[in-house]
């Protein structure tokens, strides 16, 4: 399948390994990955902080870029069949927020009335990585090997906005050599919440402290998740407390040990 990668701004700038591993994994599975170079960001930070007017041009831009990617080549597009992002949160924003912003801004006369429908069309073809693998490509065993003790944090937006359910766990269970340990109170938020982590830093930190305690009880070498943002938060806490557990994006595990050789 020909698939467009939406790297997400955070992975692009700060955690390129998540996006690189996604490319390596999909190519290993025999798919063709395209990176529409005009892409930037889904605008979630703006929307979740209340700045929908400011988010509008970002949303419009995202829709423009991926609408083009989804258009057949004969019509000047990339002819991709799907868009994938290594982030439940950013896909959640594309799927659940873009049309909302478009409608609100159209009501205020700031956006074109057709934008919401275009956003919905792009959203319908946009998948989080585990969704793409399990639902669209129909694989759970991606042929990876990763001989480590790992615990999985099901990030809130993957779990409750996208309802990815146990898809990431099914993928992880099929990884050879991986020792999967259940994370206590796994469904509790890590406390990131975008600008929440700064506006309500004390509460956010209290939530993070409990998440880190839970991670520690698993005595895992690695904590993984489908979102670089939550991993940045958990990892930031682990690093500050000098806990040895590493944060590794789900895509990097599914790409398999030694995937960097393909870089």
């Amino acid at each position: 399948m020909r698939i467009a990668l939406f790297a997400t701004c955070l992975a692009d700038a700060m955690f390129p390994r998540a996006a690189q591993a996604t490319v390596v994994l999909l190519e290993r599975l025999g798919h063709e990955v395209v990176f529409p170079s005009g892409q930037t960001c889904c605008g979630q930070m703006h929307v979740n902080t209340g700045y929908q007017r400011e988010a509008l041009p970002v949303v419009e831009h995202h829709v423009d870029v991926f609408e083009t990617a989804l258009r057949p080549r004969a019509q000047g597009g990339d002819g991709v069949e799907a868009v994938v992002a290594p982030s439940g949160s950013c896909v959640g924003s594309v799927r659940h927020q873009h049309a909302v912003v478009a409608r609100r801004m159209a009501e205020q006369g700031r956006a074109d009335t057709g934008l919401a429908a275009r956003a919905e069309a792009v959203a319908a073809k946009t998948y989080e990585l585990s969704e793409l693998l399990v639902d669209v490509l129909g694989v759970t065993d991606v042929g990876a090997r990763y001989p480590h003790r790992v615990t999985y944090h099901p990030t809130c937006h993957s779990l409750r906005m996208l309802r990815v359910d146990d898809k990431p766990l099914r993928l992880l269970r099929a990884v050879h050599g991986l020792d999967l340990v259940e994370l206590p109170d796994a469904e509790q938020c890590c406390g990131f919440g975008g600008t929440f982590s700064v506006k309500n830093a004390d509460t956010s930190t209290a939530m993070l402290a409990d998440k880190i305690r839970a991670v520690q009880t698993t005595r895992s070498e690695v904590v993984t998740a489908g979102d670089s943002s939550c991993l940045m938060h958990i990892g930031g806490g682990l690093s500050r407390l000098r806990v040895g557990t590493k944060t590794v994006h789900l895509a990097e595990i599914l790409a398999g040990e030694g995937w960097e050789a393909a870089l």
């Binding site: 790297a7 992975a11 700038a13 700060m14 170079s37 700064v198 830093a201 806490g237 690093s239 500050r240």
Partner: peptide, 26 residues
Amino acid sequence: LSAWTTSRDVPAPPAETFRKWWARTR
């Protein structure tokens, strides 16, 4: 952003962004 770093570290930005890596390799 100090509200973040009172309790959490930030990783150093990578030497190469994804975008640059993509341009270089593909």
